[in-house]
Structures are given as structure tokens and as C-alpha cells.
Simulated scan of single mutants.
Amino acid sequence: MELRTLHYYLAVTQYHTISRAAKALHISQPALSRQLSDLEKELGIQLFKRGPRAIALTEAGRYLQERALTVTKIIDKTTENLQTLTPIVSGSLDIGAGESQGMRLITRVLGQLQADYPEVSIHLRSGAAGRIANQLADGQLDFGIIMGNQVSSQYSALKLAHTDSWGILLPKNTALAQKAVITPQDLVGQPLIVSEQAMNEHRFQNWWQNVSDQLQIVGTYDLIFNAQLLVTTSHCYALAFDNLVPIEDNSLLTFRPLSPALNESTTLIWSKDRQLSSVAQIFLKRLKSITE
């Protein structure tokens, strides 16, 4: 399977017709059709369902599309980062992270890096720890930023000074908002939405202990921005990190810390099995200089 063929395949999945894809690729329609037929013969599977106006992907076709996107991104990134072997530092730096105020330190270093090396492009990707781990393994990310104390031995790690604290995001006009801190007992019977990643990793199991079966968890969220909208409109409560949602005087929401306090460390991780690009090495050196 050639890289050129993958690019042809992705063009067809993007434009949904062979004629439009051929026009975008600047090749003839019969030539593109032949390339696709040869690809299906090579793989021994049907990738497309050809209709009168457009084509649709089979299940196998969707899988190939996903993998082809990953492969082409890695190759494009590798090609770009090879430019860092020249005296001019260039290339891309890809970092995956969850939502945390710890990103302020990272972005400050990134800003200084890009100011010194304008040829460098920076890509920040949001995601849960599992997704970040997969993208590190695939080579799509140079670094990942995770919250919590458990770091797999397959990664190198740099612990950052920032610590996130869990608390409750809730409407100001509720009785619970009158409390200075929120205990597990305060949440019994209250409608609660929780970070899906934190739930899957059992982050709160020790905190709410013997009242866990009395909690009314009505949903989960990935992004706190969307969660705050739900809290505002449905008057539920969100278990979230502090300082992620701006709380102004005219805000409808407020934030209360947990008691006992529940804190999470912030750690930068990268693969032990993959050589860092020149750009990534410069970034890591600068970050270490202000954290160690």
C-alpha cells in the first residue's frame, strides 16, 4: 500500500465522489477509479458502496480512513520535523492535555519558544488521558499532560509545580452555595455531573466513601465549558477543577472546594521509546529550567 494511494483514498472520502476527488487531485477520473479498484483488490475487501450520486464507506472503509489519517499525519509531521536538522529551528510541536490551569506554565514556555523560533508551529490537542496515551504511542503527540499521581513506567515524566483542586460548580441561588466547603454528605440526593475520565479512573472513590450509593449522578462531561452550560440551564452541580470557569460578580454560578480537600498533581509525559525532535528537546530543556 503506497502513501500516494492513501492520499488518493482520503481525497475520495473527503469529496464523496470520484469526479470531484479527481479534479482536486489533478488526475483523470478513470485513473483514480483504477487506483481505488487496485486498492480494494490488494486488500481483498470492499471499501466503498458506490451510489448513483455519491459513494459511501463500508465499515472496513471507515477503519481504513481513520488509520490513513493517522499515518499521513505522522509522515507529514516527520517530514516537517526533519527540517530541524538545518541551522534554522523549525518543525511542529504537538502537545495533548486535559483542562487545567497548569497549562499556563506550558503556554508561557511555548510562547517564548515561538517568539525565538518563528518557523516552529505549535498544536495543542485536548483530550482525556487514554486518548493522549494512544496518540503518544502513535507518534501524533510529542508530549502529554495528565492529572493525577499514576504515571505508567513506559513514559518519561516531569512533575509540574501546579496542583488542581476539585470542587463543586453550582448555581449561586441554591442552598448549597451558602456553604464554604462541600462534604460528601452535602451531595447526597443532589443531581451531579462528573468528569467522565475521573469517573473511569475512580478518582473520587476514597473521597465520598460510604455515601457513594446515595449519590445521584445524572451525567458526565468531557469539557468543563459544556458542563457549565448544563449547570446554568438545568440547575445540577458539576464536580470540577477550580479556576477553570471564570466566576464574576454578575455570574449565575459559583464554586466551592471539597472537604476534605481533593487535589491532583500535573505531570508532563513523553514516550521513552521515541526520539524527541529538536523542537521538542528545546521545549523540554526550557521547561525543566523553570521547574527543577
Rank of each mutant, 00 (worst) to 15 (best):
W208F: 14
N134S: 11
Q35I: 03
L253T: 01
N263Y: 10
E99I: 15
I224M: 13
L36M: 14
V218E: 07
Q14M: 10
L124G: 14
N173W: 09
S165C: 05
L268T: 05
N206M: 14
E66W: 00
A21N: 12
V245G: 08
V231P: 01
S277I: 01
G44W: 01
T70G: 06
Q65I: 03
F241N: 03
T291A: 12
P171I: 10
M199E: 13
F255D: 15
A22D: 04
T267L: 11
N243Q: 15
A31E: 08
D213E: 11
E248T: 09
D242Q: 05
A157E: 05
Q216D: 10
T267A: 13
L105Y: 01
I75Y: 13
L262H: 06
W208G: 03
P52K: 10
S37P: 00
P191H: 11
V120F: 09
A24F: 05
F48A: 02
R4Q: 15
R34F: 10
E66T: 08
I269F: 08
T78Q: 11
P52Q: 07
I18F: 15
D164H: 08
S278W: 00
I182L: 05
E264T: 00
K73D: 14
D242I: 03
T107E: 13
E40I: 09
E248F: 02
T232L: 12
V231D: 03
L230C: 05
L136R: 04
T163I: 06
